[in-house]
Amino acid sequence: MPDSIMYQEDAFVVLEPDRSEQFLSPEELKNKLKQILLSEGFEIPRELNKFDSVDLQAEYLMNNYFELDLGAGLYLQWYVIRLEK
């Protein structure tokens, strides 16, 4: 049986072009993804059309993707990390 620690999300490392890595909480990453999804001209992945709200779309992205193509050579990547205390 898998250890429950495998499913803990303490934080995310977020990578963007020309920026240093960022450490975001799950809520901060979700808000960042929501802003991107709501931005004008951004074409959401077809798979997200089945969700009725931006909250659900952002949550699905967080849990099922690790990279989002923002067009014109721009991207957003994120990786879950566990912080030791």
Rank of each mutant, 00 (worst) to 15 (best):
P45A: 09
L83A: 12
G73I: 03
L37V: 00
L61K: 13
L37P: 02
F12G: 02
L15G: 02
R19F: 03
R82C: 14
A72T: 05
P26S: 00
V54T: 10
N31M: 08
V13R: 13
E59M: 09
L74K: 13
L33H: 07
Q8M: 10
Y60A: 09
K30T: 03
L15A: 06
F66K: 08
F51H: 14
R82K: 12
S39R: 08
N31K: 07
E27G: 01
E27L: 05
E43F: 05
Q22C: 01
I5Q: 13
D69Q: 08
G41V: 07
R82P: 06
L15I: 05
M62T: 08
Q77T: 10
Q22K: 10
R46G: 01
Q35E: 12
R19L: 06
F23Y: 06
Y75C: 03
D10M: 00
S25E: 02
P26V: 00
E43M: 03
K34C: 01
E43T: 12
E43I: 09
F66G: 03
F23S: 02
D10N: 07
L15T: 03
L61I: 14
L33W: 06
E28C: 00
K34Q: 10
K34P: 05
S25D: 02
G41T: 06
D55E: 15
D52Y: 01
W78S: 08
D18M: 13
K50S: 14
F42W: 07
P2D: 13
Q57L: 08
K50T: 15
L38F: 01
Q8S: 10
F66T: 05
I44M: 08
L70F: 09
E40F: 00
E16L: 13
M1Q: 15
E21P: 11
D3E: 15
S39D: 08
Y60L: 05
Q77L: 09
M1C: 13
S25V: 00
L38T: 07
S4C: 11
G71A: 04
A11K: 03
D18G: 13
D3K: 14
M62V: 12
F51T: 11
N49R: 07
M6T: 14
I44V: 12
E43K: 07
Q35L: 02
F23P: 00
E9V: 11
N64C: 11
P17A: 09
Q22S: 07
